[in-house]
Design a protein around this nucleic acid. Structure first.
Lengths: 347, 347
DNA sequence: CCGCGTTTATGGCACGATCCATAGACCCGG
DNA sequence: CCGGGTCTATGGATCGTGCCATAAACGCGG
């Protein structure tokens, strides 16, 4: 097979098969109207020429919109899983997915521009980064197609938003500790990370609910094992510990437990620790800490559901919060020492 | 602004601005030939109508191919970083990126089909999964456009492949241990994970180089902290330890060190441990283990370089191996105990 | 042999843009 | 007043396909 400078078109296939261009079209569209003999010859000719229908021309001509635009920041692994789920769901409904990456230097609006230029049928914006205002403006400029913000807390008219209820989850976690009798509860905060805000808000209001606002403390940490470890070290250095620490996520909890146990602070005897996410590592025998599940699968299927409904003509439903996953109680939490209060750790 | 059922076209803009369709075209292409007054009126009319050029029609008409197709498996974080780098590099050369995800159920060939249907100018296949044969077939069917396999070991005519030289990296790691005097060196293998094969090969041949084939052992592990911890546990259970363990990657090393130190096996006094990747966690004070850097940035920039050259007409260069990053020696490695041999660990 | 319905095949317009050839507008010196 | 050059603006062909209207081919009963 030689390599043609110009890719083969329907015209080329038609010429080689000795039929009209239209007949090639009917065969490749899979509609009836071609005799078996001609169908065979056309497919053979196409194979010989390495013909492949031009998607751009197809979409341009057929007035139906058959592309779903997806913007992705890909900070979380489950965001990629969400794209896969969207693939599966839309493919069997005859849609294609078009993916545009947005990064620190490349705004969602810019990524979406590419997609809107393709005249996509709907826009799915995955990820909580980027200011809300940008999403609202984008929805304005989208020409009335469905716009769905996945994993984002946004309450704007005309745009569907779905996100896990971080606040409620935090309420459960703090509630667990409070019921065990803890009063001095600190929170190793996610600092700049995106889900940090609702979780912090959840922590603060949960402490208020239990009348512990005075005893709580929010300490900037981060989202990694490293940052969790760093926070634990500064706590040890300052020589002051609460009876329980809530971590922004499981990695931070790993770091905390690591440093604490090595520093002679026993978990849960001296300090209880809870994580957030229920990653596999949280069940490791030597860690085995209490955490709450992030039901990202539920979030994903909800997004797919909304997309399908909106494509079918259903109106926007606004913001939807997914109920938090179950609390997974393990051996990192127990009641505090009798009369437990802020403890001074000898240097 | 009302929401039109049909998006505005150049014709609509032209009508509103009172000019011809062609003039709208010249304005939106950014070529000279329109008077300032008309340019202004056209842009105003376009803004009023929410006009956005149709990318499909544009690309169809202009015979130049201005799209780079990228398939992505997104198993490694740096794969996403690579897409970002490709964005930056191609954007200022007037190209657009089109991204197609490939998953377990969605082959690279299928993902690439979408891209080829868009008549992309080149194909960048990111990720080492999928059988080589599939890539070769794909290159065959690509109609002669440049095909670049990033992060893949593949030596096929006409397709450029780039990957970090895992084997050489492993040679350095084992060499480091051998020079310290280690002879009983085990390898916690990556099992099913994709880069596992070349690393294992590197380990085996490195042991051969140092005349230690008899003393080496390959133990199936995995790629996560959890799997590393599991391997360490079985080692302790079997009551037999080498003087040094090479981990498939840094997470596995974390798991090993964690379980060992808690189990009373001192690192590096009783056993030396090396990782692979130099993730930030490897520098944590309480871990601080020797590892080798994965210079994924170098890999990325090499891929970009090759793409740019091939777009400029340069011929395929075949397989390229990137030299391994520097060895980062930390406190998890030292000379073995005098006369160190396989050690029995009391239960 | 003719009329009629069904199956196949074809020609041509349209999708929304690019781009070239051409025409009008305008300025300027001769 | 006219010829010639530059700057603007326009019409129309074209990209590769979908799809509709129409034509050819064919079978069949009267």
């Amino acid at each position: 097979m030689t390599t043609p400078r110009r890719p083969a078109t329907m015209r080329d296939v038609a010429a080689r098969a000795g039929v009209s261009r239209s007949l090639v079209s009917t065969v490749f569209r899979g509609v009836p109207g071609a005799s078996p003999a001609n169908r065979e010859r056309i497919l053979q000719a196409a194979a010989d020429l390495g013909y492949r229908p031009d998607g751009r021309a197809r979409q341009l001509r057929s007035s139906q919109r058959r592309v779903i635009g997806v913007t992705l920041t890909a900070t979380q692994p489950f965001h990629v899983a969400m794209v896969e789920a969207l693939h599966d769901a839309t493919e069997l409904r005859g849609y294609e997915l078009s993916i545009a990456l947005s990064t620190d230097t490349r705004t969602i609006a810019r990524a979406a521009d590419t997609l809107l230029a393709q005249r996509c049928a709907a826009l799915v914006l995955i990820g909580p980064s980027a200011p809300d205002e940008e999403i609202v403006d984008l929805a304005e400029a989208s020409g009335g197609i469905p716009v769905i913000a996945a994993d984002r807390f946004l309450d704007a008219p005309g745009v569907d938003a779905v996100r896990i209820d971080d606040e409620a989850a935090m309420l459960q976690l703090v509630g667990h500790l409070a019921h065990l009798g803890h009063k001095d509860i600190w929170y190793a905060d996610g600092a700049g990370y995106v889900s940090a805000e609702p979780r912090r808000r959840g922590f603060v209001s949960a402490m208020a609910v239990h009348g512990l606002s005075e005893r709580g403390r929010v300490i900037p940490a981060g989202a990694t094992l490293r940052e969790g470890a760093a926070v634990a070290l500064t706590m040890l250095d300052h020589g002051e510990l609460p009876t329980a620490v809530v971590a922004y996520n499981d990695w931070v909890a790993c770091g905390l437990i690591d440093v604490f146990t090595r520093g002679g602070v026993r978990v849960p005897e001296d300090v209880s620790i809870v994580g957030f996410d229920n990653i596999p590592e949280s069940a490791l025998p030597h860690l085995d800490f209490t955490t709450i599940e992030q039901r990202s699968d539920d979030l994903t299927s909800r997004v797919v559901e909304i997309l399908v409904q909106r494509l079918a003509g259903a109106p926007s439903t606004g913001l939807q919060l997914m109920p938090p996953g179950p609390l997974v109680v393990r051996s990192s939490t127990s009641s505090p020492r009798p009369g437990g209060r802020l403890r001074s750790v000898a240097g």
